[in-house]
Simulated scan of single mutants.
Amino acid sequence: MQVTVIAVGHRMPGWIENGFAEYAKRMPPEWHFNIRELKPVERAGNRSAETVMASEATKIRAVIPKNARLIALDEHGKDLTTVQMAAYMKNWLQDGRDIVFVIGGADGLDAALKKQADMLVRLSSLTLPHGMVRVLLTEQLYRASTILQNHPYHRS
């Protein structure tokens, strides 16, 4: 089974890449964890935020594996505890579908793409840089995996 983070944005600072890589390498091998970076659409000329998000949504849809469970990160999404995230991951892993987490671009995610998602999740009430979201999401997925394995990394 594949667990993928699709992130609009590229050329992240070294500390972001290092943080992401650190938690990604800790993932259980059966998760086949990876990231797919997509170049953002430029908001040049008279392109509105909606036009940019729609264009980015097209690029995102093109790389989502067929029949994958789509989890979109959104400020209005479900606020989960880490233990709740682990419970969701357990159920999702048992159904055998690939899992895709989507991090939108600077303007967010297209409304139609959010409607297409199986679930919207809010990572934080704070406004975070997109690169930081990659690191935080990956750490939380790693932490969820340790909860599922009864590993002492997570302390309640």
Score class of each variant (00 low, 15 high):
residue 115 K to N: 15
residue 120 L to Q: 08
residue 106 A to Y: 13
residue 142 Y to D: 04
residue 99 I to L: 10
residue 131 G to H: 11
residue 109 L to W: 05
residue 112 A to Y: 14
residue 144 A to C: 05
residue 105 G to M: 08
residue 135 V to T: 03
residue 127 T to H: 01
residue 121 V to E: 08
residue 112 A to I: 15
residue 124 S to K: 10
residue 104 G to I: 07
residue 100 V to H: 14
residue 134 R to C: 02
residue 131 G to W: 07
residue 105 G to H: 11
residue 127 T to C: 01
residue 100 V to C: 14
residue 130 H to T: 03
residue 101 F to C: 03
residue 106 A to R: 13
residue 113 L to R: 03
residue 115 K to P: 00
residue 118 D to P: 11
residue 113 L to G: 04
residue 143 R to C: 01
residue 100 V to E: 12
residue 139 E to A: 06
residue 130 H to Q: 08
residue 102 V to H: 06
residue 142 Y to F: 14
residue 122 R to D: 06
residue 108 G to Y: 09
residue 128 L to I: 07
residue 123 L to H: 09
residue 134 R to E: 02
residue 133 V to E: 06
residue 136 L to R: 07
residue 144 A to S: 11
residue 113 L to D: 02
residue 124 S to M: 04
residue 110 D to S: 11
residue 121 V to S: 02
residue 108 G to R: 12
residue 113 L to I: 03
residue 138 T to H: 07
residue 117 A to G: 12
residue 129 P to D: 06
residue 108 G to K: 13
residue 118 D to N: 15
residue 114 K to M: 14
residue 131 G to L: 04
residue 110 D to T: 11
residue 133 V to M: 00
residue 140 Q to N: 07
residue 134 R to Q: 03
residue 107 D to K: 12
residue 126 L to Y: 11
residue 121 V to W: 00
residue 103 I to P: 00
residue 114 K to Y: 05
residue 125 S to Y: 15
residue 129 P to H: 10
residue 136 L to Q: 12
residue 126 L to N: 06
residue 125 S to N: 15
residue 109 L to Q: 08
residue 145 S to H: 10
residue 135 V to Y: 04
residue 105 G to D: 09
residue 135 V to W: 06
residue 129 P to M: 08
residue 141 L to P: 04
residue 130 H to V: 05
residue 121 V to R: 04
residue 128 L to Y: 05
residue 139 E to W: 02
residue 114 K to P: 00
residue 142 Y to G: 05
residue 127 T to E: 05
residue 130 H to K: 10
residue 129 P to L: 02
residue 137 L to M: 09
residue 129 P to V: 02
residue 129 P to G: 04
residue 130 H to A: 06
residue 133 V to H: 01
residue 143 R to E: 06
residue 128 L to V: 06
residue 132 M to V: 15
residue 142 Y to P: 08
residue 141 L to W: 01
residue 116 Q to I: 13
residue 138 T to F: 06
residue 115 K to C: 13
residue 117 A to I: 14
residue 102 V to I: 14
residue 111 A to L: 12
residue 129 P to Y: 04
residue 104 G to K: 09
residue 135 V to N: 02
residue 124 S to Q: 10
residue 113 L to M: 10
residue 104 G to R: 04
residue 137 L to R: 08
residue 120 L to R: 02
residue 135 V to D: 04
residue 140 Q to A: 01
residue 104 G to T: 11
residue 129 P to F: 02
residue 121 V to P: 03
residue 134 R to A: 02
residue 126 L to K: 11
residue 99 I to A: 04
residue 140 Q to F: 09
residue 115 K to W: 10
residue 101 F to K: 05
residue 127 T to N: 01
residue 140 Q to K: 02
residue 103 I to S: 00
residue 122 R to P: 04
residue 123 L to Y: 08
residue 119 M to D: 14
residue 109 L to C: 08
residue 122 R to S: 12
residue 137 L to K: 08
residue 118 D to Q: 13
residue 145 S to V: 11
residue 106 A to K: 12
residue 133 V to W: 07
residue 132 M to N: 00
residue 127 T to S: 05
residue 130 H to C: 00
